[in-house]
Design a protein around this nucleic acid. Sequence first.
DNA 1: TTTCTCACA
DNA 2: TGTGAGGA
Length: 132
Amino acid sequence: MRDHIRRNMPLLPMRIVTTLTELTPRQIRYYEQQQLIHPARTSGNQRLFSFNDVERLLEIKALIEKGVNTAGVKEVLVKSQQVLIAKQEVEKVKKELSEKELRKMLKQQLTHPLRPGQTLLNQGEMTRFFRH
DNA sequence: TTTCTCACA
DNA sequence: TGTGAGGA
């Protein structure tokens, strides 16, 4: 199971989260109202928080203690998420580019298998074509 | 027992 | 942001 899935699994009830964050339930619900967090719900309408939510709450708490209002907190969180998404995009583009290059190399190697002086693609690189 | 929503002498 | 009511 991958990490971001694990971190986003809704597992923790309100009581655990209040203990972990030292925030009151009132505050946590208020932050949810302000769209700072988006905890899941049980069938009985009880909130279930993920580890990610807890981390977010700790960030929020730190920011609030610095005197930032909820609008400011929201701005910070939205921006950090945008930065994250932007980074992921860059990585994706990078990967796609290197995929193309690898295919090109493989094709050339198959077309001219005995060409002297050319290094073979190693097994590790080859496995990239067989994933998924 | 715990958590939910709603509303405020 | 706190607190109490009333229900699940």
